[in-house]
């Protein structure tokens, strides 16, 4: 299973492809290969219809070196997600560049046809962490708040924690300001480096509290499913929140999880394992949705 290939279910083929492209971070439809797995069918008065399912693959010409690398790492989830994220992010971003480069890779000879060269350097993780920290420190100061910023590196992910009572103001309703600051910090990193690491940003402990609360919530639902069976559709969530639910499900026997719908209305379905072969496709979708979804958001919501 390739990490740049995902399956998406939606009302129509077009909607599914659009959602998939968004998850993959691809803007140009020419850069994806689409395989329609299930044609949509209209139901009667909204009942009994069937959603379209498409498999969308990100076509990346001359990506062979990366592909090999991805295979080699294919079960080391965090690093392959990181890989995926940097690719999808870069491919959407540097259209003039045509493709992303991995860390430390020789970029010469790949350019050729684009009018504008990317003169941003490839910046090491430590340096990226420093840039993120300085930006966040300056931001806290611009708000006139007191707070501290700590950064560390965890398995190729930059972890930034903004702490201090006053920084609660930078969390926002349901973490909305926190996700915006995450987006801005990533944008700053992209300004300095061609290839940027994933960033996990927490402010005033919000993300950690949210993760704990979601895990407890998921565990309760899973308890219910393992005793009663069936499926539970959750409310739409960000990719990072969906990932928490998927993780909770993965940690338990007898239950699977998968994502459906399109961002920002994409949601997780928790299902008691029926042991039927029908579930295989869904399970695969879940794996992909989780990987790509989280990767796409870059831990943007993390």
């Amino acid at each position: 299973m390739s990490y740049v290939e995902i399956e998406v279910r939606a009302k129509s083929v077009d909607l599914a492809v659009e959602a998939a492209m968004q998850e993959l971070g691809v803007e140009d439809r020419e850069h994806v290969a689409v395989e329609v797995l299930v044609e949509p069918e209209k139901g009667f008065l909204g009942f009994g219809g069937q959603d379209a399912v498409v498999r969308v693959k990100h076509r990346k010409p001359r990506k062979r070196r990366n592909d090999r690398r991805r295979k080699a790492q294919s079960r080391s989830r965090s690093s392959s997600k990181q890989q995926d994220r940097s690719q999808s992010g870069n491919n959407g971003r540097n259209r003039n560049q045509g493709r992303s480069q991995g860390k430390g890779r020789d970029v010469s000879g790949q350019q050729g046809d684009q009018p504008k060269t990317d003169d941003r350097p490839i910046v090491g993780l430590e340096e990226q962490a420093r840039i993120a920290r300085e930006f966040l420190e300056g931001l806290v100061a611009a708000y006139g708040l007191e707070g501290t910023v700590e950064t560390s590196i965890d398995d190729d992910v930059i972890v930034a924690n903004v702490n201090g009572e006053q920084t609660e103001a930078l969390v926002g309703v349901r973490g909305s300001v926190r996700s915006s600051i995450h987006e801005l910090t990533r944008t700053v990193l992209q300004r300095y480096s061609q290839d940027t690491a994933r960033l996990r940003l927490d402010i005033a402990g919000y993300a950690e509290r949210r993760r704990q609360a979601l895990t407890i919530y998921a565990d309760q639902l899973i308890d219910q499913l393992t005793s009663d069976g069936g499926e539970i559709m959750l409310e739409p969530m960000s990719a990072a929140d969906r990932k928490v639910i998927h993780d909770a499900a993965a940690a338990r026997d007898g239950v699977t999880s998968y994502s459906e719908g399109e961002a920002p209305r994409r949601y997780v379905v928790l299902a008691a394992e029926a042991g039927s072969s029908e579930d295989v496709g869904n399970a695969e979708d879940a794996g992909n949705a989780e990987d790509v979804g989280e990767a796409e958001d870059a831990g943007e919501e993390e």
Partner: peptide
């Protein structure tokens, strides 16, 4: 930004301010 994502984030940051 792509699909106005950065602009949206700047607006949210300004809103918090």
């Amino acid at each position: 930004g792509r699909r106005g994502r950065v602009a949206k984030a700047i607006r949210a940051a300004a809103g918090a301010a």
